[in-house]
Amino acid sequence: MRIKQLIVTAALAAGLAGTAAHAGDTIRIATEGAYPPFNFIDESGEVKGFDVDIARALCEEMEADCKLVTQDWDGIIPGLINGKYDAIIASMSITPERQEAVTFSAPYYSNKLQFIAPKDSDFDPTADLEGMTIGAQRATIAAQWLADNLGDSVDIKRYDTQENAFLDLASGRLDAILADKYVSWEWLNSKDGSAYEFKGDPVYDDDKIAIAVQKGNTELADRFSDAIKAIREDGTYQRINEKYFPFDIY
């Protein structure tokens, strides 16, 4: 009897939670906070950036109450799997490996991978790179690309944040960095990055960036996908895009 009651109560609670997921619900969203201009922490300690603006716009569109948390990059998928938050909006690329672990929404922007190196260097991605030291952020598709394509010939250095990789390129420890084009674009336009430039064509240009939710939670993924479509149609997306880039990154 008791057990039956428990089961009924649990089922009711689950049902309630199910319906509550629609109106005025709370969605916990994780971002990294060290990936300008997509997500970063400003002088006052607030998280800002393209991802954050998109997250806010999507939540408004979905009429959901969103709580934003920051999480170090290499623990961001494990944290989602363990239920510390419901979604990741942190410039995450869709990859087959990640699709084994999480479910993705429709893409909200497209990215390319491109090398950067000092302007006075004759670094050429199409030449023989044997013996070079190349940096990338740990647990990114750039690090994965390097391991898959150049793992045997170059020394790959992995950094906790993209900012640390740029710092080490500036100190001369690296011959080049492979990173997301728009993140590099932002850095190359800054004072620190003025002595560096893109080298060669993007080595990978079909990188789709999407929102990750817990594996199998297609309901939430679809809500995000619909909301992305909606903000794209009503011009909200374009307004956010213009704040950061003079070109459309969708």
Partner: peptide, 8 residues
């Protein structure tokens, strides 16, 4: 950490 980045 590098292995986890690949295997989750």
């Amino acid at each position: 950490r590098t292995i986890i980045a690949r295997t989750y």
